[in-house]
Design a protein around this nucleic acid. Structure first.
Lengths: 144, 144
DNA sequence: TTAAGTGCAAAATCTTTGCAAATGT
DNA sequence: ACATTTGCAAAGATTTTGCACTTAA
């Protein structure tokens, strides 16, 4: 996966015709520092210098542009993660696989995995799949 | 409560040591009338004679007892559906398959389907899977 | 009778909107 | 200079809590 520096963040913003502001760069570096999706509350906690409303707006702008994507965890709270390069404004990944750790509560985006083919009952015309698995992540399943 | 035939709803409530009240029976009949999961707002709309708070409490009691289960649609809103008989207080289904129609917004619970086996990266110890598919449901995919 | 359930009011959250001041280009 | 973006205040929406009244058992 890409190792992103500030320069990459800036060009990412440029690419989407968004101004390179402090709050936006901070959100980008927070999100890409983690390999897990981050919940809105957690983000607020870390960015206590950024207004809550600004955060909402940044996240929804990023989502609209295909820079990040939103995933709801098993409690229905929104978590955000960087999109892989395959995502763009018009077409996000079709298949997402998310892992929700019941111990540390982290949400892992396992975008690179392929879902096996799933057959639905007659008449259902799927255009995308999202799989949630819950259980223990590698860190939490390690023997102590 | 009116004396009635021993219908399924009443024995269901009895079984879980819940009193057979009007609001509860109404929720049960609403939910089992539909073969799709119903959102909280939709439920409120139909049950405008029942207090909103009462509805919250009924739903969470039912969920706790394993009578219904909650499923978040792709917008993160809670939808509720009757549990299959395999659900109980301690152990809901491990595998749920939900279909979210992008046209009519209905959420179908396809509990009877089996997920193919999914292999996760090393270290992940899954204990349950939930699959969301989005697209067109049979009704909406029918040619007009 | 009495514990459980309901309804209303009110608090606590969460999310959106409007607008003036600040900032990037 | 100009359009965007931010921060604050305030409105809306959603969910929870407290308490008195009602009801099923």
């Amino acid at each position: 996966m890409v190792h992103t520096h500030n320069n990459n963040f800036e060009s990412l913003l440029e690419k989407h015709h968004l101004k390179k502001t402090g709050p936006r760069l901070k959100v980008l570096s927070m999100l890409s520092a983690k390999n897990v999706a981050t919940s809105q509350p957690d983000l607020e906690g870390v960015m206590n210098d950024i207004d809550r409303v600004t955060l909402y707006r940044i996240l929804s702008a990023f989502e609209e542009k295909g820079i990040i994507h939103k995933v709801f965890d098993l409690n229905g709270t929104a978590n955000y993660a960087m999109c892989s390069p395959a995502c763009d404004e018009d077409h996000h990944h079709d298949e997402h696989l998310h892992f929700n750790c019941t111990n540390c509560k982290n949400v892992y985006c396992l975008d690179e995995l392929h879902l096996p083919e799933i057959k639905l009952p007659k008449g259902f015309k799927p255009d995308g799949f999202t799989l949630y698995a819950s259980g223990l992540c590698p860190k939490c399943s390690k023997p102590v």
